[in-house]
Amino acid sequence: MSKTTELPPGANLAALRKERGLTQGRLARLASVSVSLLSKIEVGDRALTPAVAAALGKPMGLSMAEVLGKASVARNEEGRLSALRSAVRDYDLPGHQEVQEDALRASLEAAGQHRDAAEVDRLLAMLPVLLRDATTHAHTANTVESWMALSEVYSSVYWLAARHRWMDMAELAVTRQRWAVEQKTNPLGMAIAARDRAGAYLNGGDFEGGLMVVDRAISQAQTNLSGQERAFAVGLLNLRGMTLAGRFKDKKEGKKETERHIKSAWEAAEWFDRDWNRHSMIFKI
């Protein structure tokens, strides 16, 4: 059978496992996941996350994308996806149209609301134009705020691509995101970009590498930020670090790293008396 199918992720995983003559118990042990979780994923009772897909793929010699399978796109969305890919490619080619900053900010807010509500169809519908507008505005205004706005759009592109299992676009989006915040010094933007980059490592099954990205970003945030912005950045990064450490094959080391990041996240939370939402990121208290 083809390694990449349009079966639901759980069914695709089950087919790949059986093709290799592996029982659920054997694959679960090799991937360091519970048999109960694997069983629920295969019948569709639990979602197959990219991180778990990467862990299950390793002993089968498969990539995370191959385990997840191909996500079909509705016919009316094919044009939107093509337009979004084109906008991502044109990252350094601003348009000639005038972009109203107020309208751009309103669109960014709407995109954040669609993302928070997991309204993926609505987000896909607006991202191609929003990305082109943000690209044009950033090149024209050339301010910290304009490049941060562009980075925020790329963060939403990453979120959407990872959710749809368009992993090539997800990888490219985090690269573009980091490029955008590097155009003008922006320590908070760098921390958020590092969080998403570590997510790409998580999706790819490189949990140790992702944690290195997180720890380096935490150190930079602690040096270059202060007050609630520093706590916000460090808190977000520690939450990502907890997730990465929880997937370590070495459970003893994973527990130690998880507890370290939990402790640091609680320390960051002491700066807040409510959830903080910045640039489509929420640090929940």
Rank of each mutant, 00 (worst) to 15 (best):
L27I: 02
A193I: 08
A14D: 04
G205M: 07
K184L: 15
V52Q: 05
A118M: 14
A198R: 05
K3L: 13
E98Y: 13
S82I: 10
Y158L: 13
R260P: 06
E6S: 15
S146T: 01
G210C: 07
Y91H: 13
N224V: 01
A170E: 13
K40R: 15
S32H: 15
V35Q: 15
P128H: 06
K18V: 09
D273K: 08
T258R: 09
S86L: 15
A198M: 05
R274P: 03
D92M: 00
R29A: 14
E208Q: 12
A47D: 13
R105Q: 11
A53E: 01
D250W: 07
A149D: 13
S32Q: 14
G25M: 09
K284V: 12
A149K: 07
D116S: 14
T223Q: 14
A194F: 00
T4H: 09
L130W: 15
S82H: 08
G235A: 02
N238R: 00
V181D: 07
E229T: 13
R80T: 11
D45T: 07
S72T: 10
E152G: 12
L236T: 05
S86N: 12
S36R: 04
E66I: 04
G44D: 05
Y154H: 14
H261S: 01
L211N: 11
A141P: 11
R163M: 09
S36E: 12
A161L: 00
V99F: 12
A170Q: 08
E119G: 10
L81E: 11
F272Y: 02
A83Q: 03
D121M: 10
M1H: 11
M169P: 04
D275C: 00
T143D: 03
K255E: 09
E98A: 15
S156F: 09
R115E: 10
F207V: 02
L93V: 15
K58G: 01
E259R: 11
N224S: 03
D206S: 11
G57S: 06
M212L: 12
D196K: 09
K251Q: 11
K252G: 09
T243G: 09
N277F: 03
G210Y: 04
A118H: 14
V73L: 12
D133E: 14
A51C: 05
S264P: 05
H279D: 00
L108G: 01
Q228C: 10
G205H: 05
S264Q: 12
D116M: 14
E145G: 12
A54P: 00
D90R: 15
M126E: 08
T258K: 05
P187V: 06
G199V: 00
W271E: 12
E267F: 02
A110W: 07
G205L: 00
K58P: 10
S156M: 13
M1K: 08
G79S: 02
A54Y: 09
I282A: 13
Q97T: 13
G21D: 03
R122N: 15
L30I: 07
G112I: 05
K251H: 08
M167W: 13
M169E: 09
T5E: 04
Q24S: 04
T243L: 06
Q113H: 06
G57D: 04
A118E: 13
D215G: 08
E77M: 10
G10E: 03
A193D: 03
L81Q: 13
A28E: 06
L16Q: 10
L56N: 06
A180T: 03
